[in-house]
Design a protein around this nucleic acid. Structure first.
Lengths: 244, 244
DNA sequence: AATGTTTGTCAACAACTGTTCACTGAAACT
DNA sequence: AGTTTCAGTGAACAGTTGTTGACAAACATT
């Protein structure tokens, strides 16, 4: 029993750290496998990676099979059940990882506190870097957001809503558009996030190494954001009932 | 040979009409099956309907199987090949139907020519009616837009881009935002269409018969459009190079 | 050192998949 | 009339799927 608790502890710690550089750098650079839980987590994440890899090859998550994933991960099909009850549970794990990526994006953007000039262009730069580095997470989120199984779809929606909420709170904190009501601010952020994810789909779907087209898509993205914030600036709240 | 040509002709005529009221109303109200080509088209569209029905039950198109569809359609699996080479081809047919729906939406919106007051609210009303009436097409387009197989995904993207283009031309024709360059107008329409499809996903994913929530989503949608057009109104084209 | 726990493996299963081929009967053509 | 065309059928195939249970070896616990 105590062992089980310990396992859970390790799991949470390592999983939550979410991807600090290379997985086992620090103590021993030897490729030897240390504790049992570490190895379990290793195959677990190799299952997750296998799913993402297959998706990168054009498949959608919902169409992936259990055996297909274990094959790609290099383990026997039955091993799957040591980590996930079924494909849905693996999908939910991917949603969590994607959510963590989103939150980290927000944290990164928060560092660029000073709302000086060209805040949009800079945010987009951060976003672009994130997009390329973690492209598989974004592909999964943007792709299954309104396509996959109902369970996963609603889980993604939750994560995205959470992201929207957090973003709107950040804008409030930085006094970014003080004349907007909270509801309007959230509506704004929802619009921005949707635009962001749509852009992600577009950009990640490109044939690779086409910098011209990529720049075009990015410019269009920036232009859309500019227009949105322009609208936000000149927004007037309805006068019926001022926020209490 | 001549028979084959005739078949093609009938196909195009009936398929292109895209859904005028009930399929065979007008001459004989008897439910008897007339010509051979008509019956072929009937099972063809019952295959398409079967796919849509299964999707309505929460499945994504990419995860559907050939046998599953023929089962739902009430024909034997081998019949499938009389109509489509494989699932991708059926998917493309669905994309075409969806595109036709989009074009019809545009045609409907065009009737409301007068750009008087509250044009957004009225357009949204038209959209909502369309959305409910043809919900399966929208579900398919919005769902597989960035999820399904690469072939279908790019086909959808083409249709959506076409829709965006046509919409921007309409706005030009009605002199709607004359101070915008063509490129900006297209960017605007792209933004609107993305917002539209995202709203479609949200609305169609709701638990049925929740008018309160539905109204909330619709209001949010209208609010987003308002903000977008507000931004479009106060948009200033960069002064570097005025459109030649 | 002895005992319990657990990750991964192996073999096997019933069910289902996409696809093939030859065939039927009715509609369409000559 | 006789002949051709063709949508839909039925049986069969090799391959794949998700899932089960028993087992081995490495590890953790006492």
């Amino acid at each position: 029993m105590r062992y089980t608790q310990y396992t859970r502890f390790i799991k949470e710690v390592i999983v939550d750290k979410g991807g600090g550089k290379s997985s086992a750098s620090g103590r021993s650079s030897a490729p030897e496998l240390a504790t049992r839980d570490e190895r379990k987590l290793r195959t677990r994440s190799s299952l997750l990676d296998a799913a993402l890899t297959l998706m990168q090859q054009g498949r959608s998550f919902t169409s992936l099979g259990l055996r297909e994933i274990t094959r790609e991960a290099g383990v026997v099909p039955t091993s799957f059940y040591r980590h996930f009850r079924d494909m849905d549970e693996l999908g939910l794990a991917l949603v969590d990882d994607g959510g963590a990526t989103l939150r980290q994006l927000l944290r990164e953007a928060r560092k660029e506190s000073a709302p000086v000039s060209d805040i949009i262009r800079r945010s987009v730069t951060i976003y672009k870097e994130f997009l390329l580095e973690r492209h598989m997470h974004f592909m999964f989120i943007a792709g299954e957001r309104s396509g996959g199984s109902p369970v996963i779809r609603s889980a993604i929606r939750n994560q995205v809503n959470l992201f929207v909420l957090e973003m709107s709170q950040d804008l409030r904190r930085f006094n970014f558009l003080p004349h907007l009501s909270t509801a309007t601010l959230q509506m704004l952020c929802g619009l921005v996030v949707n635009t962001m994810l749509n852009a992600a789909s577009d950009i990640l779907d490109m044939p690779p190494d086409e910098p011209k087209l990529e720049q075009e898509l990015l410019d269009n993205f920036v232009k859309q954001l500019r227009l949105i914030f322009l609208g936000a600036i000149s927004w007037k709240e309805p006068v019926a009932k001022p926020a209490a």
